[in-house]
């Protein structure tokens, strides 16, 4: 294998130009926390490593008329310390708090996490809850892709080799109940076995007026869990109702994946984690 060549364009335009010509032979590197593992193992069979970690065009978090924009090059640490995300996308901020270890949070980017298409990618549930769309560009065009469509299979991205994720545009939600929870084999530094994000609001009568929910790590690619929204909206959240909803969620997961050896655990644990996470909204 020929030695890989490192390329660091000065701006996005040059990067897109490069990919237009060499995309098939190129691996994009941002934070590097996933890519470097393949570099070490020799699994990366590309000619070029294109470093986009310093591009201003991919940085920044702002609320504008497009929505809540989070640059693809924003690190998990930056997400955690953003006041804007605290008030408009709390579940994402909580995700960042529980993401890997601090050294990795300092390097890993939200764009990289999505592009890597790991079923266990922790940013996916919160992005999904906020109905995030990725702004994806190549040299000639840009388009908006719902985050659920960013992966076609586990670890296979729907991005073409010529494309870069510029940013994510989220629907901001304020003043409701927002959370992200995960289960791993230890309390920190664990790959998610199950993760979940939610945003919910109740009306004056205590009924669920608005709910967005997403499940992570249980299905090969993210799935829209609108059934939870449909089932719970307009109802008064009781323990029994949340429990029932958690059961539905587990059945939905099994519908997607079929029964596997891990289902023995995941079926009840999904119901359990859903109950635990939504318990604060129970009247």
């Amino acid at each position: 294998m020929a030695e890989i060549e490192y390329v660091r364009p000065v701006n996005l335009k040059d990067a897109l130009n490069f990919l237009w010509n060499h995309g098939e032979d190129t691996k994009i590197i941002a934070g590097g926390t996933d890519v470097m593992i393949d570099v070490r193992s020799g699994a990366l069979d590309k000619k070029y490593l294109l470093d986009i970690s310093r591009m201003d065009e991919l940085k920044g978090i702002e609320l504008n008329d497009q929505g809540l924009c989070v640059g693809a090059g924003v690190t998990l640490s930056e997400i955690y310390s953003s006041d804007l995300l605290e008030s408009n996308a709390l579940a994402l901020k909580k995700t960042a708090y529980n993401f890997a270890g601090k050294q990795i949070r300092n390097m890993a980017t939200i764009g990289g996490n999505v592009a890597n298409s790991s079923p266990c990618g922790d940013t996916l549930p919160a992005l999904s809850v906020h109905r995030a769309k990725a702004l994806v560009a190549d040299k000639k065009s840009t388009r908006l892709v719902p985050v659920e469509e960013m992966a076609t299979h586990a670890y296979i991205s729907s991005l073409s080799p010529k494309q870069i994720i510029i940013k994510f545009i989220l629907t901001p939600y304020q003043d409701g109940f927002a959370d992200f929870q995960k289960i791993g084999r230890r309390r920190e530094l664990a790959v998610s076995r199950i993760s979940m994000a939610v945003f919910a609001k109740k009306d004056k009568e205590g009924r669920i007026a608005f709910l967005k929910f997403a499940l992570g790590a249980c299905t090969p690619v993210p799935h829209n869990m609108e059934l939870m929204e449909k089932f719970l909206t307009g109802k008064t959240p009781t323990r029994e109702l949340i429990w029932e909803a958690g059961g539905l969620l587990a059945q939905k997961m099994i519908e997607i994946t079929g029964r596997r050896s891990s289902t023995i655990y995941k079926e009840p644990a999904i119901q359990g984690l859903f109950m635990r996470m939504l318990y604060p909204v129970v009247k």
Partner: peptide, 19 residues
């Protein structure tokens, strides 16, 4: 392998030297 790069702790095994 933790080092400080521009004041931040990072895993140097996951950082490309070129970076």
């Amino acid at each position: 392998c933790t080092i400080n790069v521009d004041g931040k702790a990072v895993n140097s095994c996951l950082m490309l030297g070129a970076q």
